[in-house]
Computed example of a mutant assay.
Amino acid sequence: MAPATWTKLKNAVWVVIRAVLLIGLVFVVLYPILVKIVTMIKDKADIYNPVVVWIPENFTFSNIKIVYEIMNYWPTLLNTFTLSTVMMILQLVSCALAGYGFAKWQSKWAKLLFAGVIATILVPPQTIMVPLYLTFQNFDFFGSYQWITGGDGLNLLNTYWPFILTALTGNALKSGLYIYIFRQFFLNMPKDLEEAAFVDGAGMLKTFTHIIIPSAIPSIITVSLFSFVWQWNDTFFTGNFLSGVKVLSNELVALPANVNNYLLFSVPGASLETATSIDPFYASMLVDTGLMLSILPLIILYLFVQRYFVESVERTGIVG
């Protein structure tokens, strides 16, 4: 076989192998979403129909309507969007400042403190949930509240204050990772930019806001998207701190119970005596529909920002 023909054959085989691998990876990622989309429009009668796999025989939007009412969708969506946006902004400010400090602060304590930041990435949040919960249940700033009022500390649970305070102090969800991203980016920025600003008479704060931050757009985009999406999908902290507030991710935690209650008291003929007759497969179908409705805004967001996200991750990886 001629060398040119052999080269073309190897290239063709590689193209086929690469296409099969990519198609397989895409299918693995999209399969759960495709299943939930089919479930959303599937009628209850199709659950036990062995013929129905991907294409329902009886199309319906009743699942979406039921879950929409159970979740109180639009008010709950607004609460979740507000919380995720506020947390994203606060984490950007605190983590950028902390990352810049670790990148430029030369001290024997810097490495030790940064090791603490890395520890927050490695240690699961479940290990510190109990002290955090007790702290915000009786929040007392250095004993000042008890000294002034003589009573117990403030109960900040079921408010947004636990999230705001942890975000401002760089201790919120995944804040350690965001500090690490900013630090690695700032470490590789040319020192000439800062020195030129200092020569021109700019102080540390002005240099940071006018020189450093505009140059860190890739890191800002990466951290913004990570922070927004992870806060949106969080069920652990919202389930503990906001147990009495309607947040979309928190509502999903109790969604199976809410679905069962809805079926029990809203379906015609349902009563306490028929509670055991609730179809668990139908309840599971409604839960899948609710999950799809909860991630739908993120899918729409990704369609608009995917190009900027990929570019920011690439540039962050090259610089960091």
Rank of each mutant, 00 (worst) to 15 (best):
Q306S: 14
A103P: 00
G24N: 10
V20Y: 15
I89F: 14
C95W: 03
L34F: 14
G239C: 07
Q106G: 06
I41E: 12
Y178P: 00
I33G: 05
I55H: 05
M204Q: 13
S224P: 06
L30D: 00
T169D: 01
N72C: 06
S62M: 12
N138W: 02
G269E: 01
F141Y: 03
A110M: 02
F185Y: 15
P75H: 01
G244W: 05
A257F: 07
L165P: 01
V310N: 08
M204D: 10
V26K: 02
I118D: 07
W74V: 15
N49C: 11
I221W: 04
F142S: 08
P214N: 10
T316G: 14
V310Q: 13
N240Q: 10
L296R: 06
E69A: 14
Y262F: 13
L154A: 15
S294F: 07
V117P: 09
R315H: 09
W6C: 02
E57R: 15
E194L: 05
L286Y: 06
V53T: 14
M189K: 05
A196Y: 01
N49R: 06
A4S: 15
D200L: 12
L92P: 07
P124Q: 02
L255D: 05
L242F: 08
T207P: 00
D234S: 12
Y145E: 12
L173F: 12
V51G: 13
I181K: 03
F309Q: 09
G99M: 02
Y178G: 03
Y100S: 00
A45I: 09
P3H: 11
N260L: 03
V15G: 03
V86H: 04
K246Q: 10
V16M: 08
P131Y: 03
E251C: 09
N49H: 02
V67N: 08
K174D: 13
G203F: 10
A19S: 12
S266E: 06
V117W: 04
P124K: 08
D200V: 01
F182V: 04
N258V: 01
Q184H: 12
T276A: 15
L263I: 04
F141G: 02
S312D: 05
W230D: 13
Y48A: 07
P56H: 09
E311H: 11
L77Y: 07
F81T: 15
G269F: 09
